[in-house]
Amino acid sequence: MHLAHYLGLLHRAQVNLADAFRQVADAHAEEPDIEHLCQQQARRCDAYAEQLHPFVARYSEDAPDEPDRLHSQLFTGTRTGGIGLLRDLQDLYLMAAECDITWTVVGQAAYGVRDEELLAVVRRCEGETAIQLKWLRTRMKAAAPQALVVAD
């Protein structure tokens, strides 16, 4: 059963996203809403990763070796300025999207393995991940015209 690998993938994706949220918060501290909300979302990602732990343990015993190229690198550091902020938020968006689809996939597997506990975690976390995506989209939409058309 390969579920453990996808749980591992999701866990690492959430940890990476938490870390990226923190880096973006620090890099754009002069945008107070970005700083405060990114810190807040980082804590949420920590909590999601934490909730996955028992399931990683539960399924890892049955898992064969990890397949090649399971993990992907979506973030290589922050940028500066208005367009830099936009681009950083876009990175976060893609990372959150990876989490979002991985929750969906893990949720499907949870159905297959009839794990109600895992399903409950998936339902809660995928809903909140959807809000995270929506917030990033909202913030980027507001910032884009000024950053791309107006700023020098």
């Binding site: 995270q132 917030w135 909202t138």
Partner: peptide, 10 residues
């Protein structure tokens, strides 16, 4: 409508 925690727009 918006999410009251983040301001995300629906």
């Amino acid at each position: 409508g918006q999410d009251l925690v983040t301001g995300a727009e629906f």
